[in-house]
Write a protein that binds this DNA or RNA. Structure first.
Lengths: 114, 114
DNA sequence: CAGCATCCCTACAGATACTG
DNA sequence: CAGTATCTGTAGGGATGCTG
């Protein structure tokens, strides 16, 4: 999941490469309307270990989608936010969310085996 | 990347789970306006090995996004197409593509180191 | 609080060869 | 043509413990 600018055969591939990571889309989604600290993010994405969360955040950062601001205070404080470029993803994230909502309704109707 | 209906914390996660696979979005994208045979798909997604391609296609099929039609002829002929449900993903795929296009322009402007 | 460092393991994915 | 089967390596990712 490294960004290697390897020739994409189509733009869809490029987008998925950026937001298709295990927790990336969710992270971006949570940051859509608010700035969040590491621990807040972690609370919102509990399935991610700190290592994973850190890693995904770093990748999003190096792709220019989010910003990371460290406040030199005690105790430490780091804030994550969408960059301007990250904001341009919002329509994409919204369509992901919209479709996901419909999908979840669909499967909760059909399959109640869980 | 198995479909296990494990409780999603948000719909975005669910969508990514379905189309976030390594080649899934690209496959769906190629099927958006045409029916394709295995070999045709493989030509369009050459980076995928036959194993990978088969696997991704099976997952898409079991998620109800694409249909697989086998014609009992010699030589064998199999056709893949979007299901009606798969069609509902088109807006999502389009927004992925739109954004990807812009992104690719952006990085080809900024970084010419490749 | 926000992480980094380690150890460790398995499952993802590549290469290759074979079949109806 | 449209796959399956097997064998294998690598890295994705979990658990745990430590630090500025």
């Amino acid at each position: 999941m490294k960004t290697c600018s390897s020739s994409y055969t189509c733009p869809v591939e490029a987008t998925i490469h950026l937001i298709g990571g295990k927790y990336k889309a969710v992270i971006l989604w949570h940051l859509r309307d608010q700035v969040l600290r590491f621990s807040e993010l972690h609370r919102l994405v509990p399935k991610a270990t700190t290592k994973m969360l850190t890693q995904q955040l770093r990748e999003l950062e190096s792709d220019g989608l989010i910003s990371r601001t460290v406040y030199p205070v005690v105790p430490p404080k780091t804030e994550y936010a969408l960059t301007e470029f990250g904001q341009t993803l919002l329509p994409v994230l919204e369509s992901l969310c919209d479709w996901g909502t419909i999908y979840l309704e669909k499967i909760s109707d059909a399959d109640c085996s869980f």
